[in-house]
Design a protein around this nucleic acid. Structure first.
Length: 827
RNA sequence: GCGAGAGUGGCGGAAUUGGCAGACGCACUGGACUUAGGAUCCAGCGGGUAACCGUGGGGGUUCGAGUCCCCCCUCUCGCACCA
């Protein structure tokens, strides 16, 4: 054994060995309990960053720990390989996205291997491989058949700098989630996945995912945005047309005094046609087409609107309601039309004040009275109905039901549920993605590619365009094809799929990456799925994690899967920050994993990532902290170095209480540590406290070893303690522990060892420390035997000299005894 | 504005069920070893001379509150004219 700990020698040695022995390769084994452990696979952007190191280190601890506990752990890794950065980098470097991507994969794989993660590399794949995306194209065709994929013309989010459309989830505060540039609305014919068909189930299952962080579920619930209300039809005066609104406040219907339409509302054009208002309204619409989104980023727009010159009729009061176009009404939500109730909606109130429209109070707060003239803001809460005909006197919730029933009877409305969630726009006008497998024929229209013709391979022989726009439309050999129906000349779809489609099912494919008969081998998916533990960043709370849930339900309904949800437990780890900010090139605070590994070794980097903060919190990178981690590993190394020759001659102590005070103390601490570390990892994922427990054990070994060695079974007890420390910390720092394990004479890998169990008897303290309080204040400590009963503890406490001093002559009112904890004497 | 989470030494963080606040680590201080120490080992390390005071602030429940309840403040994240 070397005197000096040198990770540069040890780490590659064991990485090669693990790989050669295929220690982490797994197959289905019905006799064992399976565990599917997964970390979000990376985009091959070039190099691994600290966020990946942290994410994968957390996963690796869980994987190695559970393997040692006897689980059949599947722990795969692969590459989310389609995407725009490849294309942009390729344009810049005048290379090909495929070349760029595969080179990055090569390098990043080597980085992951240098970190010693326990992946089953035989399952690795990249999503840009046609053998992967061909199945995705098949799913698309089957979804098309079921109406779950469809094409429609609508206003979509367009990112000018990315030259492509984005789904709603991919727009953050009006900006593109990738490049942070403003997103504009553009009317385009696009492919969608009907995620809204699953809105209710996606929402409902939020209550059936107890292993998910509450805040992720909340974000998903909010994103789905269910609201219960009614659709109400308003007749347009002098026409047989109706305007349909969605409202959650049917109880305020009697107070609806005007109508607001979104600028994009299809009815606006008809309403103003030939009227003197026509030009003014059209100018207004044009203005908001140009500025609306961008202004929403900077702040709230002032409410503004314009009268269309038309009126509609309030179905319950019969009053004429002027129809306005209003800048704050969203076409995307509800029906794009809002019945305006100025007394009970703040936006409508402001609007009514500005344009001098009538305000009718129809809801009174309980025990108070308000009137329209004195209102300074809308009363938006529930209350008691007034001025509402037969419904006056009802409470809001009751009135909502009653008014809806009345409208239904008259055929002028119905109860509805509205969701904020929109269908998932998946067309991307970029090259580096999976082609959408449809063909356009002048005669037959949209024709799906026959499944037997899959995959529609993305042609690699292309010249990228400097603008970023897809070169596919110009690749004649790709575009020009024949119609599968009529055999006539036809053209292929040149849009590709959103790369979030690939990441929506990669975890399914990991169970059978080489299966060629179909997308998924049921004998494998049935065994491995669902994913037991998923680990990744919170930034995907409503992107990937929502899409993947949706896709799982689709694959279930297509007959591929038997599960309802993909991920049982979800851990969202915090960011790695430095100097109070997220690491970024522009801030110049990036710490490169390669440099850290070079300087300290993978084990030290891993240990620091796990020790500095609990996984769900942000981790503040500190070079001094890293040195602390390195110091601990050196300390462990020296301990083994100093004693390996002597303890190698004996077996680890395995009996009950050993003779000798020091030995007993160390034996007890050893078992306490086994218990603590096991529970911390298994039940709480608190690796930081698990590590600190091992540090305590090592500290105690240093402290008592000389005394222990003077005792009868001392050497055995010392070996037990040292060996336990090595095993317990091995999931965090697998290389150094593998080496030390072998130094102690073991010939097979530490990974194959069973996780130690603790002796409940040994864990117990011989003497319990009991805290004694007088009037709730700590006054003394006493030691009692664990077998002492309440009376005895009480007696010892009251006899304690310090306590007698504090109690003095005062009468003892009450004595509270909590066995094993404390005594509180109330005087 | 709505929703969620958090606030503990100089710092990262412990305290799992209401029961010794500050485990473990970093930084710092003193000492030992040493040609040397940025290695290692040992000791100390919330404030206060002390009684005592201390978990963002103020109330409350309790024998006992970092932990439970009410009010307030601050910060972070998400959504944001959602009808």
């Amino acid at each position: 054994m070397d005197e000096r700990y040198d990770p540069k020698v040890i780490e590659p040695r064991y990485q090669k060995l693990w790989e050669k022995e295929k220690l982490f390769k797994v197959t289905e084994d019905p006799s064992k309990k399976k565990y599917y452990l997964l970390e979000m696979f990376p985009y091959p952007s070039g190099r691994i960053h600290m966020g990946h190191v942290r994410n994968y280190s957390i996963g690796d601890v869980v994987g190695r720990f559970l393997k040692m506990q006897g689980y059949n752990v599947i722990h795969p890794m692969g590459w989310d390989a389609f995407g725009m950065p490849a294309e942009n980098a390729a344009i810049k470097a005048k290379t090909h996205p495929a070349k760029w991507t595969y080179e990055n994969i090569e390098y990043m794989r080597s980085q992951l291997k240098k970190l010693g993660f326990s992946y089953d590399w035989d399952r690795e794949f990249a999503t840009c491989d046609p053998e992967y995306y061909r199945w995705e194209q098949l799913f698309f065709l089957q979804m098309l058949e079921k109406g779950l994929a469809y094409k429609k013309k609508s206003f979509v989010n367009w990112c000018e700098s990315c030259q492509t459309v984005l789904a709603n989830e991919q727009v953050e505060a009006g900006l593109c989630w990738r490049c942070n540039n403003p997103v504009v609305q553009r009317e385009m014919d696009q492919w969608f996945f009907k995620i809204t068909a699953y809105a209710e189930e996606l929402l409902e299952y939020c209550d059936k995912l107890p292993g998910w962080p509450e805040r992720v579920l909340t974000m998903q619930r909010n994103w789905i945005g269910k609201s219960e209300g009614a659709e109400i039809d308003f007749d347009v005066e002098g026409s047989n047309k109706k305007i349909r609104v969605f409202t959650t406040r049917q109880d305020t219907l009697f107070g609806a005094t005007f109508m607001s339409l979104a600028p994009e509302h299809p009815m606006v054009k008809e309403l103003v046609q030939g009227k003197e208002e026509e030009k003014r309204v059209n100018d207004f619409i044009e203005k908001y087409k140009r500025i609306s989104r961008e202004d929403r980023i900077t702040g709230t727009l002032e409410k503004e609107g314009i009268f269309t010159g038309s009126y509609c009729i309030n179905p319950v009061t019969g009053d004429r309601m002027p129809i306005y176009v209003a800048n704050f009404v969203l076409m995307e939500y509800g029906t794009g039309a809002v019945m305006a109730v100025p007394a009970h909606d703040q936006r409508d109130f402001e609007f009514a004040k500005k344009y001098n429209l009538p305000i009718e109070v129809v809801i009174q707060p309980e025990g108070k009275s308000i009137n329209a003239e004195e209102l300074t803001e809308a009363f938006e809460e529930d209350g008691i109905l007034v001025n509402s005909g037969e419904f006056s006197g009802m409470k809001s919730p009751e009135a909502r039901e009653a008014i809806t029933r009345e409208l239904e009877k008259r055929g002028q409305g119905k109860k509805t549920i509205n969701y904020r969630l929109r269908d998932w726009g998946i067309s991307r006008q970029r090259y580096w993605g999976a082609p959408i497998p449809v063909i356009y024929c002048d005669k037959c229209g949209i024709v799906p590619v026959p499944p037997e013709d899959l995959p529609v391979v993305l042609p690699l022989d292309v010249e990228l365009l400097p603008s970023g726009a897809s070169p596919l439309p110009f690749v004649e050999s790709f575009v020009n094809t024949t119609c599968p129906k009529c055999n006539g000349p036809a053209k292929r779809e040149t849009d590709t799929m959103d790369t979030f489609v690939e990441s929506s099912w990669y975890f399914d494919r990991f169970t059978c990456p080489d299966y060629t008969e179909g997308p998924l081998d049921q004998s494998k998916t049935d065994y491995w799925l669902p994913v037991d533990q998923y680990i990744g960043g919170i930034e995907h709370a409503v992107l990937h994690l929502l899409y993947a849930r949706f896709f799982t339900k689709v694959l279930r309904d297509l007959g591929y899967l038997k599960i309802d949800e993909p991920f049982i437990n979800l851990l969202t780890q915090g960011m790695v920050i430095k100097d109070g900010a997220k690491m970024s090139k522009s801030k110049g605070n990036v710490v490169d994993p390669d440099e850290m590994i070079e300087q300290y070794g993978a084990d030290t980097v891993r240990l620091f990532c796990l020790f500095a903060a609990p996984p769900e919190k942000d981790l503040d990178w500190s070079e001094q902290g890293v040195e602390g981690a390195a110091r601990f590993l050196n300390r462990l190394w020296r301990l083994v170095y100093e004693h390996h020759e002597s303890i190698s001659r004996v077996n680890s102590y395995s009996g009950k209480t050993p003779p000798g005070d020091a030995s007993r103390k160390l034996h007890r601490k050893t078992h306490q540590t086994i218990k603590k570390v096991t529970e911390d990892i298994k039940e709480r994922f608190h690796f930081n406290t698990a590590i600190s427990a091992v540090m305590e054990l090592v500290n105690l070994i240093y402290q008592v070893k000389d005394d222990v060695l003077r005792e009868e079974k001392g050497l055995e007890v010392l070996r037990e303690a040292i060996e336990s420390a090595i095993i317990l910390i091995s999931p965090m720092v697998p290389h150094i522990t593998e080496e030390l394990w072998r130094v102690l004479g073991h010939e097979s890998s530490i990974v194959l060892t069973s996780w130690p169990t603790w002796d409940e008897e040994a864990v117990k303290e011989e003497q319990l420390l009991i805290v004694v309080q007088v009037n709730g204040k700590l006054r003394s400590r006493i030691y009692v035997s664990p077998s002492a009963d309440r009376e005895e503890i009480k007696r010892i406490a009251l006899e304690d000299e310090r306590i007698r001093k504090f109690v003095g002559e005062k009468p003892v009112k009450k004595v509270i005894v909590v066995p094993g904890r404390l005594v509180n004497i109330v005087v």
